[in-house]
Design a protein around this nucleic acid. Structure first.
Lengths: 297, 297
DNA sequence: ATAATAGTGTCTTTCAGACAGTATAGT
DNA sequence: ACTATACTGTCTGAAAGACACTATTAT
């Protein structure tokens, strides 16, 4: 269609592309960073009590400069012939050995100084995996890749009203725990009142041993996860094929970081879920029915 | 903190950074693409009728290869020392002359072949501007930058249920109109049932004269806009300081592409809005009160 | 029997949707 | 007077939150 159209240099598209020099401008590096979440059981001592659940995030101990020795999100450079999604899937498989899991693009981080080596632009991906299908690879492999228990909570909030202007400042703590290793980052969220709408701005107050700007990326990912779990079915990608409704509720609770009322929860997810005739014969109490995910109606 | 830690080559972080060669790998180009929306009046002939509203999107006619002569989103290369947001703000100001408008990162498009020149990764931004504050610059400047009226609607849907597997295929048409120029792209949305959850995949069936993959980016942006208008206050960034509730409702209607009931709409936005004692004396009928945006409570 | 969980019934409040009604400037 | 819009009141049904109740297994 444009084959015959010539530009102001008198070139056709074909001729233009043949002479195009991609090396004319300096270019940034592009990476993907993976937030790979799962939910696992935390055994309790009591034989009668059900195990609690914990939200886990896969982190890698950096063996190279920069941030050597610190914990970072898994990820890597995007190759020239693969799309961002392909790079994300590749990283996911390299780290966990799993395929066919939930994967969603989160955000692209482009501050020119976020990496001391060179300009690195990073697109982060959120991935959710059922822990029963997880390769042991990442969970036990020496100590360079570990599943950390995640908590993320606001611990201080300040509202200032000054005539027409209002300001809100909020501090939250992101804690990652694995064995006796604890990483504890602090983030500061500020409501900027420029223009008509307010705009939230987040900065890292204390990275707490988490490499680069990854504390902020993780916080962003958890916020997205909490939002989406309320109005989509993503929680089911953290479940095995058969599960009890209590287990499903625990997954919601551990993501939202709040308790839910059983009766209401069951009403809400009733049509997302299909009864089977299997039972989970638990310890010390009435067995519970197993369900499967049933999309839509 | 890591000053003294040495890697397996025996280098400190400082030494490592000094010898780091960023030119080792080939790198993609990175651009930003801007979706700049506004809502304007469409005059009707009748002196008594209120003007209708139309959703407008700023497009640029490409003067260079590739896609020469086609209409594209405004945008450009990200400079090495500016963040993505800074690049987006710069483009916004260059194209419209406005500052302090709503700006939100949308998505990053990374298909290796989306640009025939070289590998170009593009981060798209959604921006909303009040048309009363718009510089004429972009609206009348020859014919290389125009505000197009946008419509985006599903026109065919097919559901297939095949035992356990279900498939949904949906076709939508994106139409951009300016004067007697009409661009009409067709997009195909498919529900892929891989893994547990379904995943929607969108492809361009017919670009309809819109450059690169921009038809898809625009569609994505409109979907985001429609979602967010329901649960956030972004619609107010399309309003002037003083507006009537009917005008506000028209903005919601033109974004959502459906009519709303007046009484219900007013109830819903009641606490987002503050009455003033001004009136808009319209033609041929009862004047209406002017309101202002009033964030939160 | 008891501990601990499984699972249900129902009240209240809130809110979205639908619709009918009254009010008022400008020609 | 009439037209087109401004603005309000209220009914309905759906859904969210709170809470009390019954049922069932392993030890």
């Amino acid at each position: 269609m444009n084959d015959k159209v010539r530009d102001r240099m008198g070139l056709t598209e074909e001729e233009f592309l043949a002479q195009y020099d991609p090396g004319k401008y300096e270019r940034p590096s592009v990476t993907v960073d993976m937030l790979i979440f799962t939910v696992t059981d935390v055994e309790s001592g009591n034989y009668r009590k059900l195990p609690e659940k914990a939200l886990k995030l896969l982190m890698i101990k950096r063996a190279e400069h920069p941030c050597i020795g610190q914990w970072a999100l898994p990820g890597g450079f995007v190759k020239m012939d693969e799309s961002l999604e392909e790079a994300a899937y590749r990283e996911l498989k390299e780290e966990t050995g799993i395929e066919n899991v939930y994967l969603e693009q989160l955000y692209t981080w482009g501050d020119p100084r976020r990496d001391p080596r060179t300009r690195v632009i990073s697109t982060s991906y959120l991935s959710l995996a059922d822990s029963s299908g997880l390769n042991i690879k990442a969970s036990d492999d020496a100590d360079d890749a570990c599943w950390f228990t995640v908590t993320y909570r606001v611990f201080r909030e300040q509202k200032t009203v000054d005539g027409e202007n209002r300001a809100i400042e909020r501090f939250s703590r992101l804690t990652l725990r694995h064995g006796n290793e604890t990483l504890s980052a602090v983030l500061r969220h500020t409501l900027i009142s420029e223009g008509k709408l307010g705009r939230w701005e987040t900065s890292i107050e204390d990275p707490g041993g988490i490499a680069f700007d990854h504390a902020r990326i993780i916080a962003y990912g958890i916020e997205r996860l909490r939002n989406k779990v309320e109005y989509t079915d993503i929680a089911f990608s953290l479940m095995p094929q058969y599960f009890t409704l209590t287990e499903l509720q625990q997954v919601y609770e551990v993501i939202l970081d709040k308790e839910l009322l059983k009766a209401n929860f069951r009403r809400k997810i009733a049509n997302r879920v299909k009864e089977t005739n299997r039972y989970k014969t638990a310890a010390g109490h009435r067995p519970s029915k197993l369900y499967t995910y049933c999309p839509e109606f």
